[in-house]
Amino acid sequence: MIRTEQFIYTPREHEEEAASNSYVMSMVAIIAGLPLPIFNLIATLIFYLGNRKSTFFVRWHCTQALLSQFTLVILNSTAFWWTISIIFWEKSWDNYFFAYLLTVIIVNIAEFIATIYTAVQTRKGIHVAWWFYGTLTNLVCKPRI
């Protein structure tokens, strides 16, 4: 699910720090934004916008962090509104609801661990690409000529 790749150039110290921070940002947002999942996305988006004119290494990792947050926001929002609909709009509890909650929790934990690992590795200058998100980032984030 996570692969270490050779980046097209060797990033400098300040690039490693900024790229690593994009993951730290989304991690802090996960902790702060648990009740309202949209905070994760907003925090990562702000960090992405602040670094969109930065070097390729930083932009690449900000984009990967941002894209991964989109999926989490959709999954967490669905869980949030499903729970609200049960409490306020007379929907009933069922096994699919609890299974969904558990799956979303597993995804959040996996994402959390992957984020910590990637933040540490990126800080060391190691380029870490995630399954699907890394490939997608390669597609949308290109080096400036």
Partner: peptide, 12 residues
Amino acid sequence: VTWIGLAQVDWL
């Protein structure tokens, strides 16, 4: 697959 698999458990 994870979701449907977990839904087979009687959580209620």
